[in-house]
Design a protein around this nucleic acid. Structure first.
Length: 842
RNA sequence: GCGGGCGUGGCGAAAUCGGCAUACGCGGCAGGUUUAGGUCCUGUUGGUGGCGACACCGUGGGGGUUCGACUCCCCCCGCCCGCACCA
């Protein structure tokens, strides 16, 4: 029997032909709207795909991410849950602004045009969004709540302004948060970041460092392990002690942080970050010119140069001595750039014998290296390798002979007793720098008044809307373009009414994305950022789908916001995303797609060629969700073929029904063998989807299609001789229906076509997920593998209920076993009924 | 350097608990349909040896535990990711 001969199906199936038809029907049906009815008995499920940045049309990466999210969302819909699956746009940001400068237009033009393009693409891509909740962060109705939240943070001391070293991107002409600097480069444009001293707004995320760390335990097992790990590393908690050193010529002692207070006797010099005002303070007057020259030199270095560990360690002696508090020994004070100004206190006690960085400095400048922990390893002064392991304290007065842990406890106790220090914790995490010197973002709702200083804009004056700037007005000048908008900047002080000026910076766009998942719950609320009642119903997000590139930035910030909102009493949970799955990247020929490599693949083109269903299926089938997909390795045409096979099963059933009159066949009857396959498929696909093994789920569907095909063809071949079930068999219809519903997770158009062919309406989206009949999952015979010394020598068909004794006897008599044994002595028989027997022979 | 992850056919990948390695797909091969090519359909496809029944080898390498190891343990090699003077 061949396709060409088949009387059942003459026409060919092209999945591209049915897309428009179903888009129109779905728009009418609106099947995915989440219900807010508190009386709705369905279990709620909240699934969020990370919202896109509207940089143009959707691309291959979006196609993968949303195919995964949509499959899961549709699964929960079909399981009868009240699913919230919203979409929005991360619509503020630099590219819009740069486009506006190029085109002499307003960033909003570019932004909203791209959003419309993407929205249309999402509809074509058949993603099951609740479109009524769509949000865009550049809408004043959205960003006014950024401002509202900023003011609440401000009231709590969590938003504050301070001067200090910041990361400045010379291309984008704005400051960046620490998290946005990757290997010393701007994460957006790749330019080398330089350090500048500026007064900026910060969110006090460091105050939440411990909670961010502790609550990560709740996410264990539900978030990818590496994301949790990256967050833990980023927060970088270290335990140690603060030690106060008196310094000649200064009244106040200088505090240092150390993780190794046990090595205090080994401190042979003292270093302060050269570019900290403290360095000048500590410097002997005659050494000042030298220090200043050095600092000048340091400033010229980029962060990349400065942080290179191979570089010779430079520094200058400040002509002063600090007093080691445990032995009153004077140690020289140096200024150097290997000590960072913004970690710990910006000053350290240097223990060259037991710290590699300090050792490098000591060797470069001829400073003493004194071993105080005997680790049994070679002398660091000779070997050039600091010893950091366990050992016994030596040269350390009262703590001699103790081990590392004992010594840390002892020294800490001594310091505390004498008021010279205490146990302390330090974090690598810095406060989140949120102000930006660019236009297309949320204005910071603060007014600067000559007499009242910082004055919050009153809530009833929110939103502070952006002024109407466009084109050249937006050129980066090192200060925010907002500063040039005189009409906008000059306002009466909300407190005293005298002339004052608005803060001209805008917020980091990561502020927008730190709480959008709550806004989705009541996106049209005009009185507050979100309705706590509704958020309580939906949130936290049950499933969050997005790329691992946000492992630190967005996810850390969103967790931070959630904790603040919890503290404000607006949420009753402390973690925003219960479960997280990362999708991999779509690459091409082994590399990320890029214009410069010319290996880009256009999503729209792929869809034109193969249709939406085939592209979605390609994404899902290629690999597990978290793995990268190399587009050079996949064959969308194979998916087109598969879809046509599925369709042909449904079409054959429909044709057989038409020939036989109205199908009266009873459910639950028909070919038993096919029914078993169908129900096993239901069972397995359900389990696989629950475990996110979507690629394997598709493989199971392919097997079901093959089984259905065989059942149909064998019946046709028989022609009255009743050799096989044929297309009219109820089991075949059952298989086709199950197939349509299960397939709808991945290929909604084809699923709809099949569902319709099988006589159902209006949409497979309103179908129910099938339940496997347990009776059909039990096999009446099982293949038992019989091994001799671990090698398969025979196979037996046995009933699943076979006893150990019976199976043992059968196995020992199996021909393959007898042949292999060839009279050898059987020393042991391991029987695992009903699937395996292993015979151990001499 | 530190931390983490991963190595399975020619390729993408499967393998609940330690129990038939390579499901499913791609590619290849053979056949059918076709005037031909393509499409489509069917079969086949880890390696070596053998006409064959079969035998041996085989999940990066080496060792171990076990009746039995892709799976657990130790050592090594390779690749990927994160952090990288954080005191």
């Amino acid at each position: 029997m061949t396709a060409a001969e088949s009387p059942q199906v003459a026409q060919r199936y092209d999945p591209r032909d049915v897309q428009e038809k179903w888009q129109a029907r779905w728009a009418e049906l609106d099947p995915f709207r989440a219900s807010e009815d508190p009386a709705d008995p369905r279990e709620r499920f909240y699934l969020v795909d990370m919202y896109p940045y509207p940089s143009g049309d959707l691309h291959m990466g979006h196609a993968e991410a949303y195919a995964i999210g949509d499959a899961l969302a549709r699964y929960h819909f079909l399981r009868g849950r009240n699913v919230l699956h919203p979409i929005g746009w991360d619509a503020f940001g630099l590219p819009a602004e740069n486009a506006a400068i190029r085109n002499d237009s307003h960033p909003a033009d570019w932004t909203y045009a791209n959003i419309e393009t993407q929205a249309a693409s999402f509809r074509r891509y058949a993603v099951s969004f609740d479109w009524s909740r769509r949000l865009q962060t550049c809408d004043p109705e959205y960003y006014r709540w950024n401002q509202w939240l900023f003011l609440r943070f401000y009231e709590r001391g969590l938003a504050y302004r301070k001067g200090g070293y910041v990361n400045w991107c010379p291309i984008d002409q704005t400051v960046l948060a620490n998290e946005q600097v990757i290997n010393g480069r701007c994460e957006r444009c790749g330019a080398e970041v330089v350090r500048r001293v500026l007064t900026q707004w910060y969110f006090k995320i460091t105050e939440y460092a411990d909670r961010l760390l502790a609550d990560a335990a709740q996410l264990e097992g539900h978030w990818p392990e590496r994301v949790l790990l990256m967050q833990r590393n980023w927060i970088g908690r270290s335990e140690g002690a603060e030690v106060r050193f008196a310094v000649e010529g200064r009244d106040e002692p200088v505090t240092v942080f150390t993780t190794r207070p046990d090595t205090l006797y080994g401190a042979t010099f003292f270093v302060v970050a050269a570019d900290l005002p403290l360095a000048e303070e500590l410097c002997a007057p005659e050494r000042l010119p030298e220090l200043r020259a050095y600092v000048e030199q340091v400033r010229k270095l980029t962060d990349i140069e400065r942080q290179s560990a191979e570089r010779e360690k430079t520094g200058v002696f400040l002509g002063r001595y600090a007093i080691n508090p445990v032995n009153d020994e004077p140690i020289p004070v140096w200024a150097a750039d290997y000590v960072l100004p913004d970690y710990g206190t910006g000053a350290i006690m240097a223990v060259p014998a037991h710290d590699q960085g300090d050792l490098g400095f000591a060797r470069a400048h001829g400073l003493e290296v004194r071993v105080v922990v005997d680790t049994g390893q070679p002398d660091p002064a000779q070997a050039g390798v600091a010893t950091v392991g366990e050992g016994t304290l030596v040269n350390s007065g009262s703590i001699n002979g103790l081990d590392k842990a004992q010594a840390i406890a002892a020294i800490t106790a001594i310091l505390e007793e004498k008021g010279l220090g205490k146990a302390a914790v330090s974090y690598r995490l810095r406060d989140w720098l949120v102000s930006r010197q660019r236009f297309w973002g949320t204005p910071i709702p603060i007014v600067h008044c000559p007499s009242c200083d910082e004055v919050p804009v009153p809530d009833d004056q929110l939103p502070v809307e952006l002024p109407d700037l466009r084109g050249q007005d937006l050129l980066p000048r090192g200060v925010s373009p907002l500063a040039a908008a005189q009409d906008w900047v000059n306002v009466p002080c909300p407190a005293c009414g005298e002339p004052a000026t608005r803060d001209t910076d805008t917020m980091d766009t990561f502020v927008d994305s730190s709480w959008y998942m709550f806004r989705y719950c009541s996106p049209h609320d005009t009185d507050r950022p979100f309705d706590p009642e509704r958020v309580r119903r939906w949130a936290p997000v049950d499933m969050y789908v997005g790329g691992v590139e946000h492992a630190i930035l967005h996810l850390l910030y969103a967790r931070f916001f959630t904790k603040i909102l919890y503290d404000m009493g607006l949420l009753d949970f402390t973690e925003p995303f219960t479960r997280l799955i990362n999708q991999g990247q779509v690459i091409n020929c082994g590399r990320a797609m890029s214009k410069s490599l010319g290996n880009g693949v256009d999503l729209g083109e792929q869809i034109e060629r193969f249709g939406v269903d085939a592209i979605r299926l390609t994404m899902i089938f290629a690999s597990p969700p978290a793995d990268d997909i190399d587009w050079a390795d996949v064959r969308p045409e194979a998916m087109v073929k598969f879809l046509a096979r599925v369709w042909r099963v449904a079409a054959d059933v429909a044709a057989a029904d038409a020939a036989a009159g109205p199908a009266a066949a009873a459910r639950g009857t028909g070919d038993a063998e096919l029914r078993r396959v169908t129900h096993r498929t239901i069972d397995e696909v359900t389990r696989l989807v629950e475990a996110y093994h979507l690629n394997v789920a598709v493989a199971r569907l392919m097997e079901l299609v093959s089984a259905a095909r065989k059942a149909i063809d064998s019946g046709l071949k028989a022609r009255g001789s009743a050799e096989g079930p044929g297309p009219a068999d109820p089991a075949v219809r059952e298989a086709a229906e199950v197939l349509a519903v299960l397939l709808s997770l991945f290929a909604p158009y084809t699923a709809e076509e099949c569902w319709e062919l099988l006589g159902h309406e209006p949409s497979v989206a309103l179908a129910t997920w099938p339940l496997a009949d347990p009776a059909l999952l039990v096999l009446d015979t099982v293949t038992c593998v019989v091994q001799v010394n671990g090698k398969v020598r025979d196979k037996l068909d046995v009933p699943p209920s076979i006893t150990e004794a019976e199976l043992r006897e059968l196995a020992l008599a199996a021909p393959g076993v007898l042949r292999t044994l060839d009279g050898r002595h059987v020393s042991r028989v391991i029987v695992r009924p009903p699937k395996l027997v292993n015979i151990v022979a001499a």
